[in-house]
Write a protein that binds this DNA or RNA. Structure first.
Lengths: 247, 247
DNA sequence: TTCTTTATGGTCACTATGACTATAAAGAAG
DNA sequence: CTTCTTTATAGTCATAGTGACCATAAAGAA
């Protein structure tokens, strides 16, 4: 059998369907939430699934993911383009869809806590779920969701992308809450503060003396995401090794 | 247009070809090498490319990658299954192949310095190249290769997989050579030694007093890869941040 | 023998961090 | 208004981990 690119007939390939699946995360009320859609038809009718859809003939997978993200959140493409979107991995098990051969490119998206989780159109049936409280999902989406959570948790250690969960201006307490929620641990507040502030470019103080209202205690200073993307040295999870698979 | 999974006709999807591309790395003579194949037909006839091929109708991408790895290295599937193989990411640009719509799942493979780089069959035209000395490759393989090098370099920081470049028994000097070659830096030998030996499960001393022959200086003790897969705390590259893209 | 090379064992200073204490500034409770 | 609670912010101190060294051991080469 000739399967190498240099000895094949371009018209004799086996046709695959290619989809994107999105694990869209946000932090609401100190819990990690994920956006799910309810399936209206077989297979897995009535089950919940990660939002996703086919890659169109003339778009890349990332464009498809960004398009789906806008549709499911009900936001405009412009506002969606500021969200962190990251390719996770591709799922290719031959039996992952009982109907036909589908390979799915999975993406993780990190969004701030949105005022309205759903809008019109396709987004009407999308809903935020506590990431710990999802029942069994359709297809191999439990696996994809678990992989996505592992990846996001690991990324927080070595990158600055925790700010992607925060609004444009945020307090260090809110940023710490992101870490604590995603990792499921409690962090020491002064130590966290020291680490963030001594990492150049992680956050950037908002100049004036504006302070956040609403809460109970002393008002906190506001910060914006800085220019840095990597975290050196990393901010490692407490107690031992990172939990996720190390495959 | 209905692109969500819950409102589509399973027979109306756009057909994609799905391939795997492999970045197979080894360390030879203190240089990072990558396995390339010469293309025998258009497009990019005469160019060098990463080995790869179509995913068959009933196999997963990982199975396809493992199969291609065996074919291109000329080794048996049994010996190939011990090699580290890791999915990198998927490339989906609509124009990445001028002939048709092909999405490619890229894998990185880490192999020890093999006695015979090529065997019979498909492997006859495969050849090791210095990873710094590859000309422009076919398709988007320059990009894939660069991404693969970035990923491998980053993985050495947080995982124990440097041992995947080494034979079953190796000296700490050989292991250090892997780091120095992949990162392109020089490391302090006593410090490297201390780090590796104090990380539980990174390496495991070979019990007897056997020592490596052949070299110049004092014979070195032999080690095997340990049971650990993650490196905590990590072994960070010297001088500042990791170079690669942080996308 | 002497020199070179590699392996191995150690010291020392400094950085980053975990654990902890203290103070400041807000609202809530009395 | 005073006191309590809550959150933010500013420190201190001990220690683990690391980078930069130095020293010695054991081999082949000159």
């Amino acid at each position: 059998m000739s399967t190498a690119p240099e000895g094949y007939d371009p018209h004799a390939f086996f046709p695959f369907a290619v989809t994107v699946d999105l694990a869209v995360f946000t932090v609401r009320e100190a819990r990690l939430h994920v956006l799910l859609v309810e399936r209206g038809q077989a297979p897995y009718e009535g089950s919940w699934a990660l939002p996703g859809g086919f890659v169109l003939p003339r778009e890349s997978a990332e464009e498809a993911a960004r398009r789906e993200l806008a549709e499911e959140t009900g936001l405009t493409k412009e506002s969606v383009c500021s969200f962190h979107l990251e390719q996770l991995r591709t799922y290719t098990d031959p039996d992952r869809d009982p109907r036909m051969r589908v390979v799915s490119v999975a993406y993780a998206a990190l969004v701030p806590d949105l005022p309205e989780p759903r809008g019109g159109g396709d987004a009407a049936h999308a809903q935020w779920w506590d990431a710990d409280g999802t029942g069994p999902l359709a297809f191999d989406h439990d696996r994809i969701l678990a992989d996505a959570r592992d990846r996001i948790g690991a990324r927080l250690e070595y990158s600055c992308l925790a700010t992607a969960f925060c609004p444009a201006e945020f307090t260090l307490g809110e940023l710490q809450q992101v870490y604590e929620t995603v990792w499921g641990v409690e962090l020491d507040r002064p130590n966290f503060r020291r680490k963030v502030l001594t990492t150049p470019g992680f956050v950037q103080a908002v100049d004036g003396p504006p302070r956040r209202t609403g809460g109970r205690g002393k008002p906190a200073a506001l910060y914006r995401a800085g220019a840095a993307t990597a975290l050196h040295p990393p901010l490692l999870r407490p107690e031992g090794r990172p939990e996720g698979r190390t495959s």
